[in-house]
Write a protein that binds this DNA or RNA. Structure first.
Lengths: 108, 108
DNA sequence: TTATTATATAAGCATACGATTATATAATTA
DNA sequence: TAATTATATAATCGTATGCTTATATAATAA
């Protein structure tokens, strides 16, 4: 059952707290790598690697703007992923819980 | 964000082909361990351990009937898991793809 | 051009995971 | 009671995962 195999591969990526947080944040807007680094307790290479995996599975897409790379959701054709994210908290709640409500493109 | 942590833990369990198949089958009815052993290409202890993890996260519940233990979904209070499973193939499609349409409580 | 900033890639490492075989427990049947 | 059947647990093992530090690449700014 190829469909289940592929779905499992993608769901596996949602089964990580850091990635699930990033994806939930991306429900609102696109974010650049350095913003995730500021928000999440993880190194910059760590963030990049999570995003690489998500992109490899087509779950996110990138948008290069000068030296910044913005990542956003690409789940319109992945209904079960979309459904999961719809049940996750929104950016405001996430940032508030992480005490990071102040961040705004800190990357300078 | 405790909610994301917990959700990630549960989604991690869906991110495995074998478990996702079992859960999708359970959309239709409860199944005993030996049925899963017949259907999936995995040993009996392997099946038991997958079910133990699913039960530990409250995703399935068991129903002991004599020497058989039947497992079924317990996702009414887990909307995002429910949503994922609703997008997965049904038992008929799964068994057909695995060439296992014949099985019917083979455990004898 | 040189320095700075943003991102990606590589290498290494500890831990988690999925599977197996062996064995234990429990219920059923002879 | 002994044998069979169903399930669970334990021990083991190879591989995958997530993280880090170090380094490379690319774009911007001085």
């Amino acid at each position: 059952m190829e469909r289940l195999h592929d779905a499992a591969e993608k769901l596996k990526l949602l089964g990580d707290k850091t990635r699930l947080t990033m994806l939930s944040l991306m429900k609102e807007r696109e974010w650049c790598v350095c913003e995730f680094v500021d928000i999440l307790d993880i190194s910059q290479p760590g963030v990049s690697q999570h995003l690489r995996k998500l992109k490899a599975q087509g779950i996110v897409k990138e948008n290069k703007q000068g030296q910044w790379v913005y990542y956003s959701l690409n789940v319109e054709d992945k209904p079960y992923i979309k459904a999961v994210l719809e049940h996750m908290p929104d950016s405001k709640a996430i940032l508030s819980a992480l005490n990071k409500e102040g961040i705004k493109s800190i990357c300078k």
